[in-house]
Amino acid sequence: MEKFYNEDFLKQLQRLSLRTKKLKAGIQQGERRSPRKGHSVEFADFRSYSLGDDVRYIDWNSYARSEKLFIKLFVEEQDLLLNIFMDTSQSMDWGQPSKSRLAKQIAGAFAYMALSAYDQVAIAACSEHLYSYQPPLGGRNALRKVWGFLDALPVIGSTRLSDSIKEFGPFSRRPGVSLIISDLLSPHDFKEGLKYLQYLKQEVILLQILAPDELSPVLHGDWRLLDSESKEIREISINTALLKAYEKKIREFTAETREFCHRRGMAFIQICSDELLEDIILRSMPRAGILG
């Protein structure tokens, strides 16, 4: 994976971090503000002293003023769990340039960012099932392992995102951020899966990758289209009217997905596989409020 990224890009990545809408409760101490109160230097609140509290946190100035004992609470900085769901179905291996390659680059970049911030990263490979899962790893040392896992992911099966995510349920230990990278081109519904992730207290980021030929195909005449996943054949006579209808359809599909995500408080971004990784990570993502 290293070959995908140059030094400058990695340095820039270090300056970025995932923008989470809500604070997520972590397990280990990290760099990220946590909803829990802890022992960092950042003051958070007061509360009445109760027996057993650490006397070092008694605010003596308040006691001087009110003769009541108050305990100073500080924000606890904890780590964040980033779950990356990679669509590894055969449709991701299609297009020029390949969608799966860009998907792995983006996932790698996100993992780098997370691990650099002492967050934890878990990776789930989805096709018809959740066929491979990398449990959460933390620390910069885990980077090589995460990249290695991403590198080794094969392209296999068809897309059943909801089923795969539901199979992920038992592995979900705590709230976190879930990044789903897929082309979403499947007759099987993906929305249930996204809703389930929210149920698992995950902040959902949906990243749709489409090849240029999927966004605006350059075809004309009579074609027998072979579905790369289902191997089904569809005979079709493509003319300008049909192409227009297709483009309209894909716009509708995108708009509907965007609407769904917006309504459910999920982040959604559609990218084309011919876009540059730097543009996506350093410009598109911050603009969409995903990175900051």
């Binding site: 299609w94 081109l185 090849a211 009579d222 074609w223 289902s230 569809r234």
Partner: peptide, 23 residues
């Protein structure tokens, strides 16, 4: 009558199906 078709592998025929169904 049926025409002579060229064959091509596509990622998914899902959207094409939708378009034809609509039309």
């Amino acid at each position: 009558l049926k025409r002579r078709y060229q064959e091509m592998l596509v990622s998914s025929t899902y959207l094409w199906e939708q378009v034809l169904k609509d039309m």
